[in-house]
C-alpha cells in the first residue's frame, strides 16, 4: 500500500478545485437554506449557467472572457428571479419542486441536439479558458509541499482565484449575517408571518436570498469550467446539488465556515476512502472486491456516513443545534 499516494491524493482533493466548486455551491445554499430556509434543489442549474456563460461567450461567440463572467452573474440572478416570482409566495415545497425541474431544464437545453451549434450538445464546449490562463502569474513548474502536495502552475492559478472567491463570498456573507439584514433572514426561516407582522417585506428578502445564493453558485460554475477547460452538460445533474447539500450539512448549516470545511472534508474523505480501497485491492489486502467496484462502494460509504451524521450530529461540525432548521423542535 502506497500511503504517500493515498494521503497526497486526499489532501490535494481537500484543497483542490473540486473542494472550491462545492464550497461555493454550498455557500450559495447556505444563504438560501441555511439562513433563510429556502429549499433550492436546483443549485446545479446555477453552476451550469455560470460554466456555460463563460464557455458559450468565449468558445461559441468569440467574445471576451470577462464579458462571459458578467453574463454568467447576470443570468444567474435572472434565473433566481424567474424561479422566485411564482414560487416564493407559496409554501417552501413548491420552490423545491420548481428549482429541481428548472435545473434539469437548463441541463437538457445545453445538451440538446437542436442547439448543439451553440452549446456543443453532449460533448460540451472546450477551448475557452485561454485568456484566463494567459493571466496566470505563476511561472511553469511544480508547486506545493513534496511529497504530499504538488500542483502545476495552471492548477495553482485556478486554486488561487477559487479560494479568493470563496474567501470573498464568505466575508460578504459574514458581514451580511451580522447585520440587521441577516437578522431578518433568520427570522423568516423561523416564521414568516411574524416577520410580516413587524413590517418587513418577506417576499423581497426571500428573493434577495435566492438571487445571492444563485449568484454565488454561478461562481462555482466559473471555477468548474475553468479548472477543466471544458464543460459538459451531464456534469450538472442533480447529484451535484445533493453533494452540495451533503457538504453543507456536514460542515453545519447557517455557519459561515460550515460549507468551506464541509467541502474540504467531504473531498478529503471521499478520495481517501476511494484511493485507499483501490490501493488495498491492488496490493491484495482486500480480495473480495475489484477496483471497478470501488467507485460504487465509496458512494455507499458516503451515504452511510451521511445517515449517521444526520442521526448523531444533525447540526454538522460547526452547527448550533438550537439554530438549525432541520430539527422539528
Amino acid at each position: 500500500m502506497d500511503w504517500t499516494l493515498i494521503i497526497s491524493r486526499a489532501v490535494e482533493a481537500g484543497i483542490g478545485s473540486e473542494a472550491i466548486i462545492y464550497a461555493l455551491a454550498a455557500i450559495g445554499l447556505n444563504v438560501q437554506f441555511g439562513y433563510t430556509g429556502l429549499l433550492n434543489f436546483g443549485q446545479a442549474g446555477f453552476l451550469a449557467i455560470g460554466a456555460y456563460a463563460i464557455a458559450v461567450t468565449v468558445a461559441t461567440f468569440g467574445l471576451p472572457f470577462f464579458l462571459g463572467v458578467g453574463i454568467g452573474l447576470l443570468l444567474a440572478a435572472v434565473m433566481a428571479l424567474l424561479l422566485g416570482i411564482p414560487t416564493l409566495r407559496l409554501r417552501a415545497d413548491y420552490l423545491a419542486i420548481v428549482t429541481i425541474a428548472a435545473a434539469e431544464i437548463v441541463r437538457l437545453v445545453v445538451r440538446s441536439v437542436a442547439l448543439s451549434d451553440t452549446f456543443g450538445g453532449t460533448d460540451g464546449l472546450q477551448a475557452f479558458s485561454g485568456s484566463f490562463y494567459d493571466m496566470n502569474p505563476y511561472p511553469p513548474g511544480e508547486y506545493g509541499i513534496p511529497p504530499i502536495i504538488g500542483f502545476d502552475n495552471r492548477s495553482m492559478w485556478v486554486l488561487t482565484v477559487g479560494w479568493v472567491l470563496v474567501a470573498v463570498a464568505s466575508f460578504i456573507l459574514f458581514m451580511a449575517m451580522k447585520s440587521p439584514w441577516g437578522r431578518v433572514l433568520k427570522a423568516i426561516r423561523e416564521d414568516e408571518d411574524a416577520v410580516r407582522s413587524l413590517g418587513k417585506n418577506v417576499f423581497s428578502y426571500k428573493m434577495q436570498a435566492l438571487v445571492i445564493g444563485g449568484v454565488i453558485g454561478s461562481l462555482g460554475g466559473f471555477i468548474f469550467a475553468l479548472s477543466r477547460s471544458a464543460v459538459q452538460p451531464d456534469l450538472f445533474s442533480t447529484d451535484l446539488t445533493f453533494y452540495a447539500y451533503t457538504v453543507l450539512i456536514l460542515g453545519g448549516a447557517a455557519r459561515i465556515l460550515g460549507p468551506i470545511v464541509g467541502s474540504m472534508l467531504f473531498w478529503l474523505l471521499l478520495i481517501f476512502i476511494g484511493t485507499g480501497m483501490e490501493e488495498a485491492v491492488n496490493s491484495g489486502a482486500i480480495t473480495f472486491i475489484t477496483v471497478n467496484q470501488v467507485g460504487a462502494i465509496r458512494l455507499m460509504l458516503v451515504g452511510l456516513g451521511l445517515v449517521l451524521l444526520l442521526i448523531y450530529r444533525p447540526q454538522g461540525i460547526f452547527g448550533d443545534k438550537r439554530e438549525i432548521s432541520l430539527d422539528a423542535r
Binding site: 458581514m175 451580511a176 447585520s179 440587521p180 437578522r183 431578518v184 418587513k200 445571492i212
Partner: peptide, 14 residues
C-alpha cells in the same frame, strides 16, 4: 421600523 441595516448593501457596512 425603517432600519438602515436591513438593506443588504448598507448592511455590509456596519
Amino acid at each position: 421600523q425603517a432600519q438602515r441595516g436591513e438593506n443588504f448593501f448598507r448592511g455590509l457596512i456596519p
